[in-house]
């Protein structure tokens, strides 16, 4: 019997190696797999590359990983948000490498990785300093920038509901990057707030089919706080 549920955060994170590239779902405070992210502090991994839209806020989740010096590099679209003081201190002190990526390019690079497309051309950022060192090519006279797929060793996602096959749904704006990250990593780990029996989730409304998901841990923590 297939059962992707594990019983603890530690079990969920087993085998996540040092220097891994991690794809994190979440946008602002919503849809963040904060329990899994903070679980990485217990496993002792370091030298991580983190792919995420934001660079954390306050002292939870990614901000804690940053504070404890576990992150070598951030690949991020909007690191500076209200409360991102830990990021700002580390980056200002030169203790953190940052690759700034336009938000849609970040999403599409992960989508491409999950879809087996090694690179693509996008008009976004053409003619700007974010494309300064990149190959560009004109299509119909419009400049486009070549971008490479961005895959992860591990994706950490937050779902609303999951079953034992790893089928997932999300809650409102909590969907954001989560389904995209889930497709783009060799090991996708989900934390879920609710659990359904197999067959209980409507096949018409499953957002992430279980083929993209390796492990699920049930963590009913309630509403995101900001």
């Amino acid at each position: 019997m297939i059962d992707k549920f594990v019983t603890s955060v530690a079990e969920a994170l087993e085998g996540v190696p040092d220097a891994a590239t991690l794809l994190l779902g979440g946008f602002g405070a919503v849809g963040q797999a904060n329990h899994l992210i903070e679980g990485l502090l217990e496993t002792g991994v370091a030298n991580l590359t983190i792919v995420a839209n934001n660079a954390g806020y306050g002292e939870v989740g990614l901000a804690r990983l940053l504070k404890e010096g576990r992150v070598r590099k951030l690949i991020c679209s909007y690191p500076r948000i209200a409360g991102s003081t830990i990021f700002e201190e580390l980056y200002g002190a030169g203790k953190l490498e940052l690759e700034l990526v336009p938000q849609g390019t970040l999403a599409e690079r992960m989508r491409a990785a999950g879809a087996g497309i090694p690179a693509f051309y996008t008009p976004t950022a053409a003619g700007t300093q974010l494309a300064a060192d990149k190959e560009t090519r004109a299509f119909d006279g419009v400049p486009h920038v070549m971008e490479h797929a961005l895959s992860g060793d591990v994706a950490l996602v937050e779902a609303w509901c999951a079953d034992r096959w790893g089928n997932l749904t999300y809650r409102r704006a909590g969907r954001n990057f989560n389904p995209v990250c889930a497709t783009a990593a060799r090991l996708t780990i989900a934390q879920t707030q609710t659990v359904a029996e197999l067959g209980e989730m409507d096949p018409e409304t499953i957002v992430t089919p279980g083929i993209f998901v390796d492990r699920v841990v049930h963590l009913p923590y309630g509403d995101p706080q900001d």
Binding site: S77, Y78, P79, R80, I81, S84, F87, E88, Y91, G92, L98, L100, V101, P102, Q103, G104, T105, P123, T124, A125, A126, T128, Q129, L130
Partner: peptide
Amino acid sequence: SSTDTAPAVGGAMDLAIG
């Protein structure tokens, strides 16, 4: 500036082109 102390681009470039 081209050496912003903590740059952030978000979706601005995608929106402005798309």
